[in-house]
Write a protein that binds this DNA or RNA. Structure first.
Lengths: 114, 114
DNA sequence: GCGGTACTGAACCAATCAGTTATTTAACTG
DNA sequence: CAGTTAAATAACTGATTGGTTCAGTACCGC
């Protein structure tokens, strides 16, 4: 299902290998073999992870001779940060005040409506 | 793979149905049938989505007679916001300055570190 | 041109996912 | 008690995921 951008970003980020790759790229560009080095998996597996990240717009790839240097692209992360921001009030308030807030905006007992 | 909390949060959020459920819950508690109402899918399907959200800690469920009211739990969102925050500098700088920054922290040509 | 290095693509596999229908549990209602 | 409503569970299905191995493509250096 769901080919929307946010879903693509989130499911790309849902894998720890891919998050580690992004963390590595936050220190600068890297080739595929460099990115693969820390992982106990084959190169084609890493190549697939990179393709997922690329399709989500989280990385871009250049061409330098036989190397394909990857670099971080932050736009989808910005979008995600924007989405999550709409929930900030739910964790910023103290738990007691959040409780109050929830009770306040609540429409009432489920049995009462419909 | 990976049962770590962040991965669980992200893969739970990667589904638009589940994000819509969270959005609904941000307006207050709701029962399962209420949550299911906007979707063209069976009730068990929604029940499964709720289980995913619950295992990720994004919702909690109470008991009121035959209803099981769901409420939003923001802690995992807070954790996610914290994680994404480490990448903020990559989208906050103007693109040109980001380019400069990337080139600056880059170790050099991939060929040099073979 | 040949051999090595960097990477991608294709085919395959097991596990998980998102949905279905049918059944079951639990609680209220008359 | 019987009947109804709310929700979960079970069993099944098709699609997707994350990994593999093996082969192919592209570029460099000798």
């Amino acid at each position: 299902m769901s080919a929307d951008r946010l879903s693509a970003t989130l499911s790309a980020l849902a894998d720890p290998t891919r998050r580690a790759i992004l963390a590595r790229l936050s220190h600068g560009e890297a080739s595929v073999t460099e990115l693969a080095e820390p992982f106990a998996m084959s190169l084609p597996a890493v190549s697939k992870h990179l393709k997922v990240l690329e399709r989500a717009g989280l990385i871009s790839r250049g061409r330098e001779a036989q190397w394909r240097p990857c670099r971080l692209e932050a736009a989808p992360l910005k979008e995600l940060a924007g989405w999550i921001e709409t929930y900030r009030r739910f964790w910023e308030a103290s738990f007691d005040r959040l409780d109050d807030y929830l009770r306040e905006i609540q429409e009432g007992d489920p049995r009462d409506r419909h």
